[in-house]
């Protein structure tokens, strides 16, 4: 299955890696775009990138519970120091881009990142 490195995802979306692993070995196969954590908690996929504009502590907690290792915050939303600390504690990589949810999803979909469904 095709997979994309976090470094490439950051490059394609002009995103900044705020914390976590950005090495070429950090590979992601699928992504899910949502601001609704209730929907994120229903997913069963692993090795997933969560693309969201919901920049609060619950987005990071949701990722922790759902075994999601990568979060990309869109629309210029920034992770607070508390969110970064929680992400680091759980080995979660956080990226931030100024692009919209639609643009970010479109770019990554075109690059071969698969949808969950």
């Amino acid at each position: 299955m095709a997979s994309i490195s976090i470094g490439t995802i950051a490059e394609l979306t002009s995103a900044k890696v705020v914390c976590g692993n950005k090495g070429k070995s950090c590979l992601v196969e699928k992504a899910f775009s949502s601001d609704l954590m209730s929907d994120v908690l229903r997913l069963e996929s692993e090795n997933l990138l969560l693309i969201t504009g919901l920049a609060n502590l619950q987005a990071v907690r949701t990722a922790e519970m759902a075994d999601i290792s990568y979060i990309l915050f869109v629309r210029g939303k920034q992770a607070t120091p508390e969110m970064v600390a929680l992400a680091k504690e759980n080995g979660i990589t956080i990226l931030e881009t100024g692009y919209s949810l639609y643009k970010t999803s479109g770019i990554l979909y075109s690059a071969g990142l698969k949808p969950v469904f």
Binding site: V40, R42, Q58, T62
Partner: peptide
Amino acid sequence: MGFGAGMG
């Protein structure tokens, strides 16, 4: 907060 969608 991203919840309350009636899915819980």
